[in-house]
């Protein structure tokens, strides 16, 4: 399932089954982008139409270009996100251009958050965030189905409890 983005290398350790996140995350992020980019693009287009100044079309043009770039990028980004539950730790991988892979030992988790904003709820997705004693552990998985998010949270919590050490 990882053939389309990942060449072998440090970000593809052996014997790891990466679980992808829901494609709905791409839809949710695209809608968000559509709002952020679409409103100024329409506004710019209206302004250019009404004023009749030709170079004003640059503004909607730039925003449309941004939107197209995002439309190309976001689905790829979402496909690049993966997570894997291993025996003792959770792996989260993301990024195409700037890649990162974080490994969070279950025994190090302090607590687990499940969050879903209004847009995410509309698309039926939620995000799970793991917290360790370090604020720099950026261990969040966006775009899980609510069922999967709940399952993951419960599983992580029980595994964390079983292995919890001090700091």
């Amino acid at each position: 399932m990882t053939s389309h983005v990942v060449p072998a290398g440090p970000f593809d350790p052996p014997d790891v089954n990466w679980a992808p996140v829901s494609r709905k995350l791409a839809s949710a992020r695209l809608s968000m982008t559509a709002i952020v980019v679409g409103v100024p693009a329409v506004g710019g287009a209206v302004a250019a139409l009404l004023s009749g100044i030709v170079w004003l079309w640059v503004i909607p043009g730039v925003f449309v270009a941004l939107g197209l770039w995002a439309a190309w990028l976001i689905p790829r980004q979402v496909r690049a996100v993966g997570y894997a539950e291993r025996a003792d730790d959770l792996l989260i991988r993301k990024g195409i251009m700037f890649r990162s892979m974080v490994v969070v030992p279950y025994g190090r988790m302090q607590y687990v958050d499940v969050q879903a904003g209004p847009l995410a709820r509309a698309f039926g997705i939620a995000s799970v965030q793991l917290h360790t004693a370090s604020p720099s552990s950026d261990a969040a998985i966006d775009g899980l189905t609510p069922v999967e998010a709940t399952r993951l949270r419960d599983k992580l919590a029980s595994r964390g409890e079983a292995r919890l050490a001090g700091l």
Partner: peptide, 11 residues
Amino acid sequence: RTQSLSLEQGP
């Protein structure tokens, strides 16, 4: 005392 680890790579 290792909390978690991450691997990063830019272009």
